[in-house]
C-alpha cells in the first residue's frame, strides 16, 4: 500500500513538469515579458525604458533558460524558468503584480471557497442520488419519463441563468437572503445559502440523468436477479444492493473533485462576491495578472493528481476485491 502510494506520487512528477512546461511556454515564450509589460503599462506609457523598469521591478528581466552573465550554478538558476516556474514545485508562488504574496492570499481565500464548495458537493450528491433512485424505482412509468424530460430541460439552461434567476427571485423579489457579499464566522451562513442552492439546482439535470443511467446499468446485472429471486422487496434491492454496488462509479466521479474544491467556482464566487480563490482567479484574469493565473494552474494540477490518488485509495474502502499492489 505504502509502496503503491509512493509510486503514484513519483508518477505525478513528470506530469507536473509537463504542466509547468506548458504554462511556461504559454506565458514566457509565446507571450514574452515585453508583451506583458506593454499591456500593464498601457498604450500611452510604452517606452523602452518603461518596459525595462517594469520587467526589473517584477523580476522578469532574466533570460529564459540560460543566463550567460551569471557565474557557476547561477547560470542555470538565475533564469526565468527556475525563478518563475520551477519554484512552484516548492509552493513558492511569488508575488502578484500588486506586490502581495500569492501564497498568503491562497491560504486566506481557500476557506470561503471551501465553505461554498463542500456543502454544494454534499447536498448535491444527496439530492441527485435520491432523485435518480426515485426515477429508477418508478422506471418505465410516466413519472420516470417526466423526470427525464425535466432533466433534459434543466440541463439545457446555461448556468448563468440559474445564478441570475436565484439572485433575482430569492435576493431581490422575496428578500430572503443577501444578493451577494460575505462575512467570516457564523454570519457566513446567510450569505452561503443562495450560492449553495444555486450550485445544487444548476447541477440537477445533468447529474440526476447521469446517476439514473448508472443505476439502470446496475439493474441488469446478475446479483440484482439473485436478490429478487430471494424474494427481497424492490426497495431493498434498490437501496441496499444496487446503491452499494454503484458506489464505485459514483466515487470515481466524486472523489477526484474533492481536493479541487479549495479552488472554488469562478462563476458562483464572482457573481456572489465571495472572497474565495475562484473570484481571486477571475480578478487575476481580468487584470491579466499572469503570476496568479500560473500559480492557480499549477495548484489545480497538483490537486487533480491528488484527487486521482484518493480515488484509487477510496476503491479499497468500498470494494474489497480491489487491492493496491
Amino acid at each position: 500500500m505504502t509502496a503503491y502510494i509512493v509510486r503514484r506520487l513519483l508518477y505525478a512528477i513528470p506530469i507536473l513538469i509537463g504542466v509547468n512546461l506548458i504554462t511556461f511556454a504559454l506565458f514566457f515564450i509565446v507571450n514574452t515579458p515585453d508583451d506583458m509589460a506593454r499591456i500593464h503599462l498601457g498604450a500611452k506609457h510604452v517606452t523602452a525604458e518603461a518596459i525595462e523598469r517594469w520587467k526589473r521591478e517584477h523580476g522578469y528581466d532574466k533570460p529564459l533558460f540560460y543566463n550567460g552573465e551569471a557565474a557557476g550554478v547561477a547560470r542555470l538558476t538565475d533564469t526565468l524558468f527556475v525563478q518563475k516556474s520551477l519554484r512552484l514545485f516548492v509552493f513558492d508562488f511569488g508575488q502578484a503584480d500588486d506586490g502581495r504574496d500569492i501564497g498568503r492570499e491562497i491560504r486566506e481565500r481557500m476557506w470561503p471557497s471551501l465553505a461554498i464548495a463542500l456543502p454544494t458537493l454534499l447536498t448535491g450528491l444527496a439530492v441527485y442520488i435520491s432523485f435518480a433512485l426515485l426515477l429508477v424505482f418508478f422506471r418505465a412509468t410516466y413519472l420516470d419519463l417526466a423526470g427525464v424530460v425535466l432533466c433534459v430541460v434543466l440541463m439545457s439552461i446555461s448556468g448563468l441563468f440559474y445564478v441570475i434567476g436565484g439572485q433575482y427571485l430569492l435576493g431581490k423579489l422575496w428578500n430572503l437572503v443577501p444578493i451577494s457579499g460575505y462575512q467570516p464566522g457564523l454570519d457566513a451562513v446567510k450569505f452561503l445559502v443562495l450560492p449553495v442552492l444555486v450550485g445544487v439546482v444548476s447541477g440537477i439535470g445533468e447529474s440526476t440523468r447521469f446517476y439514473r443511467t448508472l443505476f439502470l446499468e446496475e439493474m441488469h446485472k446478475d446479483y440484482v436477479r439473485t436478490a429478487r429471486a430471494k424474494g427481497l422487496a424492490e426497495s431493498v434491492v434498490l437501496f441496499r444492493h444496487v446503491l452499494g454496488n454503484a458506489m464505485i462509479p459514483i466515487l470515481t466521479g466524486v472523489v477526484v473533485v474533492i481536493p479541487r474544491l479549495f479552488l472554488g467556482s469562478l462563476i458562483v464566487e464572482s457573481f456572489f462576491g465571495i472572497p474565495g480563490l475562484g473570484s481571486y482567479t477571475i480578478d487575476a484574469i481580468a487584470a491579466q495578472d499572469f503570476a496568479i493565473v500560473r500559480a492557480m494552474v499549477f495548484l489545480g494540477s497538483v490537486l487533480y493528481i491528488l484527487g486521482l490518488l484518493l480515488t484509487d485509495l477510496s476503491y479499497t474502502l468500498v470494494d474489497p476485491r480491489v487491492r493496491l499492489e
Binding site: 513528470p14 506530469i15 509537463g18 504542466v19 506548458i22 504554462t23 504559454l26 506565458f27 509565446v30 507571450n31 508583451d35 506583458m36 506593454r38 499591456i39 479541487r260 479552488l263 469562478l266 482567479t281 484574469i285 491579466q288 499572469f290 493565473v293 500560473r294 492557480m296 494552474v297 489545480g300 494540477s301 487533480y304 493528481i305
Partner: peptide, 28 residues
C-alpha cells in the same frame, strides 16, 4: 502522458491562459 497532463490542468484556467495569450498575440 500528454493527455493526462492536459487533463490535469483545470479546464477554464487553461482556456483562460491560452485566450489571454492569444489576445496579446492579436494585439501585437
Amino acid at each position: 502522458y500528454v493527455y493526462t497532463t492536459l487533463n490535469s490542468i483545470p479546464g477554464v484556467l487553461l482556456i483562460a491562459a491560452a485566450v489571454l495569450v492569444a489576445q496579446v498575440y492579436i494585439e501585437s
